[in-house]
Every structure is written in C-alpha cells, then in structure tokens.
Design a protein around this nucleic acid. Structure first.
Lengths: 222, 222
DNA sequence: GTAAATTTTTAGGTTTACCTAAATTTTAAA
DNA sequence: TTTAAAATTTAGGTAAACCTAAAAATTTAC
C-alpha cells in the first residue's frame, strides 16, 4: 500500500500511457520516464510481483485493478497540489506541474483529504484534467462508449464490457482489441450500425457491439 | 546546492544537536536518526567532502557556514509547512511534525517563498519555534550572550566571537569549550565579573570574556 | 600510567534503482 | 518463409545509503 517514489512514477506513467494508447510497451515507458528499457524490465518484475500489473515478458503490460487505484490516488495528489499552487499561491499553469511532481509523493491520506476540503473539492485541475475523489474515482470526460464518439474523430479502444467468448470472437475477427485506433465514418440510422476505419480497412459493426466498446477520446487529436 | 533527502536529514539533525549541546558525536547523531554509527561515519565523509561540515575523524563535527545555511533553509521549509498544516488545514499541533518531515524535502525555493507570503510571513511555527527568513536568518530566542543568561539557569556554550589566540588560551585554561554546560551563580556589580559553575568546579570570568561567549539556553531545563 | 571500557572508524556486504552490452524474442520485409 | 530489423530481456556492473563485525583510537578508571 506504500510505494517508493520510483515505483509511484512508474505506476503513474503506465496509467497515462494506457489512457493514451491502450497498451504500454517497454520502450514507450522508458522514453516517458527518461530511462532505459532494461531498467523498465527490472521494475516491471518488481511491480508485477506486487500484483500492481499484469506482465507477460515480451507482451507489454497493463495495470491491475489495484495498480489502477494506486495510479489514481497519485494523480489525485498531483492534481490537488496543482490546483493549490495555482489558486492559492498564484503560480502560472505552466509552472505547477514540476512542483506537483515532487509534492505528489508525500503520501499522508489525511493531508490530501484535508487539502481537498480546504480547496472546496475542485473537480478539475488548472489544466482541465479531472481530479479523482478520495476513493480514486474519476469522472472521465474522455472515456466514452464508441457509440458516442463524434463522427470523423478517432478514439482508442481502452475497455470492453461484456467479456463473453462470443463477443471476443467477434472482436478478434474484426481485428479490434485494446489499443486499436478507430475512426467513426458513418452512422446508419436504420439499424444504428456504424462504419469505422480501423487500421487500413473499413469495417461495419452493430449497435449492440458498439455499446460494449469504450474508447479514449483525445480532444487535441484531429 | 541541492541535497538528497538523506543528506538533508543529516544536516538538519546535526544542526539541532549542535544547538542543544554545542558539539555533535557520531553516536548521538546515529541515535537521533535511528541509524548506526557506521552509517553516520559514511555520511560524514560525504558531507565533509561537500564542505558542509568540519570533520576530523574521532573528534566530532560541526556545520560549516554553508552547512548551517542549508540547515536553516530546511528548517524554514519544515516550519512553514507546519504552520500551513495547523492554520489552514486544521491539524492539531502534534500531527504536523511528521507530515512536515516529508514536505520539507520539496525544494523549490519559489514554492516556499510564495507559501511564506501566503501565510503572512509568520515568525513562529505552531510549536513556538522561530521560522528562518528566505535568506536563512533566524531570530534566536534561546541563543544569547552568557552575560544575559539569568542567574541559576544553565546554558551550553555554542559559539565564541573573537577567536584570538589570547582568548582561546584563557578559555582552555578555564576548561570552557563548545558544549560546556555553564550555570551563572553570581553577578558582581563592582566589575561585572561572573561566578559560574562549570563541570564540578566554580570559576570566575571577566565581563570582557563573558561578552564573547554565547550559550544555548533551554527554557525547559531547570 | 596502564588497563578496561567506550567511541569511532574501517572492511566487507546488502538492496534499490539505475546503467551498458550481449543475447533473445517478436515483428516486418523481401 | 526466411532473413533483417526492432523490441525486449538477461547478464553483469555501479552508486547511494544502509547494515554487521572487527579493528583502531580515545576516554575513563584504578
């Protein structure tokens, strides 16, 4: 339940990469943390032994439920401090990030909950990112069912509900998995089916399937 | 100018021990930091190489001017956070210390100076200890010339101004050094000389000498 | 003033989080 | 489908900050 500064930085980085692109590769993580791939592998073994992530050598990794919760509590601390620095101490929004990188590792839960209260339970940090609550719950603006993804916007598959074998078979057939980038090209009102661009192909999926696919939607992407 | 968390904890502990008793021994420091004497010796070599303290093997150590300044800036951070926790977040005064132990290692100078301003430049922390200013200056209530030490109170020699060979010879003869515990027994109005109890003997010193001796005065001692 | 007790330092090990270089495994290309 | 390229892991090593046990220096006690 208590992690080293280094472990926390890895957990947080994995969370962010996962949000951006579904899966996390060793090299991507090494790049994000300004370290080397070999160091990442070392840490993956450690975090995996602590059950914070699912790790199969050579096949990337994703946070476990426990790892995700840990990540959200670190992000909560980071964003609350950013809010404090900006609103109470008058820092510019570009300045707050690096200071919050240090403050986020101070781990007293009581401190953070009191700070949250003192700040009036702000829902967003100065960059507009949502602040997880004291249980690690986050309102995710940009994590939405594929059905609601605007036309001609791309989203990255981050979650599927209903993990039945039937549905997974269908997804596999259509070559859709966690991390697949999808772009909605057309909505057909008749049966609410969708036409998508995935990789280099154009595919069609039913409303029923689309309801079960959640994507991360990056507002800054075209 | 930037130190590791471990270095900072050593610097701070040395400062406090020096204030309390003039000199700092390896064992006392090990005890204060809940570590072992051998680890202290390791760190002393490191801090000594960085010119933060004067270190002669087997003869204890004292902070250099630079080390003292570093200590005061760490103490400043600690006490400002204590004040913040107590005044703004409503923590009880017994709770603030351990959280401030973590916050004090966040080193942004701008953060601390802004926090100081936000808190209204408080002169004392919740325990009544003075808060050093942004340059590391501290108003020392309990660091005073021997001349001003109340009768029948004990003080510990912590500093001597005028380091002339003549004065040091006299101090040596009277067996007074940094760390010597002194108790003022009498003031003689005629020549302002003082009669002191030092170790087990009673000695007399001139006003001129007394003016140059500074002691740490612990209000809680008898 | 010497012996015993205490304090401090040295010597040699451990763990964490890094590193480089070499060996594997997977992926992409011809 | 075999080979080349890229990604990942393993092997072996480093520095910081600890540790224990033994050696050396200092202090205290007789």
């Amino acid at each position: 339940m208590n992690y080293t500064v280094s472990e926390e930085n890895y957990i947080k980085a994995i969370y962010h990469l996962q949000e951006e692109s579904g899966t996390v590769s060793t090299n991507a993580l090494a790049e994000k943390l300004s370290t080397k791939a070999a160091s990442v592998t070392d840490m993956m073994k450690k975090l995996s032994a602590k059950k914070l992530l699912h790790y199969k050598p050579y096949y990337g990794f994703t946070l476990s439920a426990e790892g995700r919760k840990a990540a959200l509590l670190i992000i909560r601390r980071h964003r609350l401090w950013e809010f404090f620095l900006s609103q109470k101490l008058g820092f510019e929004w570009e300045e707050v990030h690096s200071i919050a990188e240090e403050l986020e590792h101070v781990s007293s839960k009581k401190l953070i909950d009191r700070l949250d209260e003192y700040l009036g339970f702000p829902p967003f940090d100065p960059h507009g990112d949502p602040i997880p609550d004291h249980k690690g719950k986050i309102v995710s603006r940009n994590h939405l069912p594929l059905l609601l993804l605007p036309k001609n916007k791309t989203g990255v598959v981050c979650h599927v509900t209903n993990q039945s074998a039937e549905m997974l078979e269908l997804l596999k057939h259509k070559e859709i998995g966690i991390g697949t980038r999808l772009e909605v090209k057309k909505h057909f009102p008749f049966d609410h089916s969708l036409e998508l661009k995935a990789k280099k192909q154009t595919i069609t999926i039913s409303e029923q399937l689309a309801k079960n696919i959640f994507v991360t939607y990056d507002e800054t992407s075209k």
